[in-house]
Design a protein around this nucleic acid. Sequence first.
DNA 1: ATTGTCACG
DNA 2: ACGTACGTGACAATT
Length: 944
Amino acid sequence: MESKQHLYLVDGSAYIFRAYHRLPPLTNPLGVPVGAVYGYTTMLWRLADDLNKAEGPTHLAVILDASGKSFRNEIYPEYKANRPPPPEDLKPQFPLIRDATRAFSLPCIEEPGLEADDLIASYARAACERGWDVTIVSSDKDLMQLVGPHAGGRIEMLDTMKNQRIEEPEVEEKFGVPPTLVGDVLALMGDAVDNVPGIRGIGPKTATKLIQEHGSLEAALAAAPGMKPSKLRDNLIEHAEMARLSRVLVALKEDCALPVPLDDFKLGEIPPAPLTAFLEEHGFTSLLKRLDGGRGSPERKTQLNPAKPVTAGAAQAADGARQPLPDMSAVDRSAYACVQTLDDLDQWIARAFAARVVAFDTETSALDAMRAELVGISLATGPNQACYIPLAHGGTDMFAEKPQQIDRAAALARLKPLLESDAVLKIGQNAKYDLNVMARYGIAVAPLDDTMVMSFDLDAGRGEDGIGGGHGMDELAARHLGHTTLAFKDVCGTGKKAIPFGEVPLDRATEYAGEDADVTWRLHALLRPRLSSEGATRVYERVDRPLVPVVAQMERHGIKVDRERLASLSATFAAEIAKLEGEIHTLAGQEFTIGSPKQLGEILFDKLGYKGGKKGKTGQYSTDQSVLERLAGEGAEMATKVLEWRQLSKLRSTYTEALQAAINPDTGRVHTSYSLVGAQTGRLSSTEPNLQNIPIRTELGRQIRDAFVAEPGNVILAADYSQIELRLAAHMADVPALKEAFAEGQDIHARTALEMFGEVNRDTRGRAKTINFAILYGISRWGLAGRLGVSSDEAQAMIDRYFERFPGIRAYIHSTLESVRTNGYSETLFGRKCWFPRIGSSNPNERMGSERAAINAPIQGTSADIIKRAMVRMMPALEAAGLGHVRMLLQVHDELVFELPEGDVAAASDVIRNVMAGAAQPAVTLSIPLGVEIGTGPSWGAAH
DNA sequence: ATTGTCACG
DNA sequence: ACGTACGTGACAATT
């Protein structure tokens, strides 16, 4: 007699979501994220391992959700509408689940219009009809409805992560009712993630209680009018139809036509070749070893047919994938193709799909991503396997004959599915630029890797002493590939003779553009594996990589600037500047260029005879603010006037004039460009224009902030972290008095004053504030002495007292420096490294400078990590609250600036505060709270 | 291209 | 003998 058949149904889609969140962000040798795939693979392995065991499977199939809408959407259009999009580094893993299943030679079932749950239910039922037992490999609560005996078999579930079998008692423990009533409970409680409405105000507890009392959903609804008056009773009556609709949504469709007959799920031997190829492709070396090494599993195969190592070529032949280890032959620019026909383009697109990884680069008419016209696109699928697709060559002369090229709109229509495909990883160098250009042509490039950001996360601060520390492509090519790239100016010329890229002849353009994509591909192959081996994966995957599209969108939003207001300020400033200029010249007794520090120094110190020292190197007088303030204090009227002149000139040239020029004529807004690799500590920097140094400290300057305005009906909302760096210092150095002060919401500088000087007044608080900052910046007795106007001995006494009152600080400084000297780098709480190659320099100046920077970097860098995490989570959180229209515009290190309709301020403030205050979680638990201060108003100035 | 200065956190 | 707070970017003058 044949023994009992046992069918295993694996809920593949649900599994990878859980695996993704539980496993570290691994990547395969090509840089495709495969953490969840690895988890899935090990799970299949374990299942296949049970093949010969008593309770093990005789039949097995993996069931997946087909993409697109299911029949439930026809019943209820909002079904699953609340689902947040999957994370960037999960998307490319979905198609790999099918590959993994195929590698085990196991059937993989999906059916358009049906969800995995329905197929699982239908197969489980059909198997029971035949008298088989069924194990559903899942922990999905919806599937728990199925558990129990059916016809001649029985159904149970297996949660492979908790290694727990789910039978009737487990279901009843969770829902308080037997499996047959689970659907009724689910209908009452609803499901926020799947957007099953349920009944307002009813959660799991109440739902269970109602079903227990009344025996069914219908009975509970029928009994409602007789219940004692309550909100619950009213809701049951009012929303009864919602509950019935929910009941239909949570019901599983158990009579689907089976796309593949049950008998086809019979488990046979698992052929080793495809499995080996798959494991090699994704670098699952520990599994490969188990396959090769004797007691390997899945066991049968290795016994019957010991696996031979499969060569890269064989792997390629097996499934069309690219070889795992790139052959890094020399860059050969003559190997690149120029794509001028749609057929050619289609072939390249197909190659990219097959390769699953493609480097790409855009060529444009300008450096400003918000104004640049797309001129061409280059792609690379491997070393020297690159092409250039010219799209707008031939320049602006309408009558000149243009080179043969594909119509831009037609080419973009073909490229869009590739560039947006979850199954193909796109690699860029400074990808934010290309992302913004493509976004303006209606293409949302994803998923995305950025070699520049990778380089930064690996090597920030490195190479300041020789090899060059930048992260630009030319530098990276020289450093990592030993290759000198064609420079832009070699192709387009320089100065007056420069031509736009669109006028470069196609052969030359192909060499340049193809090389960019080729080199980017190669850099990716080199840098990607370093992320995991050098411990940079977490910062890259969880912080900087997801930040790229977020920052790109902020740049595209831009911020509205009131041109008239700036112009009027500018005119006021100009008049005052002219007046001061006359007065200064009179005082000097001659005309001179006030803006020239050299001339000014000579006038002040030589001609007028004020006291002042020369600067060492250039032999020039210092005339900076501190010097002029000293002179002004001594009664030098000229110094006072020069200070005023300097302030107004600065405000006018850098702000009121430059900002008007920065307004984009198409959007009417100002679009900054953020650099993710600008500051070694991990901070962002802002350029063209720099919107991170808009004045605020003086009343005159603050008026400039008033010119940053919201659109009519909207307001600007500014959210600041309060004292974040001091809070982090209190946490990282573990300083009890400071932590206590923050926990109690005290004025931290006042508390410091009390500890230091025994009393709090304006003077002591100010000095305490200076000392607090001195600590953050790496203190020296001389520096503090200069700031406080005391002797260096007195400064040293204060430092000693600070260390005494705030134990922990000294130990923090000591251990940080010790660690930097040993490892060469400092680290933030989130693992971001910053290298200090000159920490051991024999030049005391260099060495001590590095030491101060090294003390500061973990604090400044942790703060940067935290606000970056907040930025990554911000829009999904706002969207979940129905506030997807709120626009995040600017980041200023510890501040985020938003624009939103006036009526949404209250709701948005809650979300923003929560996201920012909780941004360290769950990766890091801080021992101090993160304070967030929020202000709103018609302008940025008014929002503070 | 470099220097000095000053705007911000 | 030196010269001292950390991290940025822009502008004007000067080389």
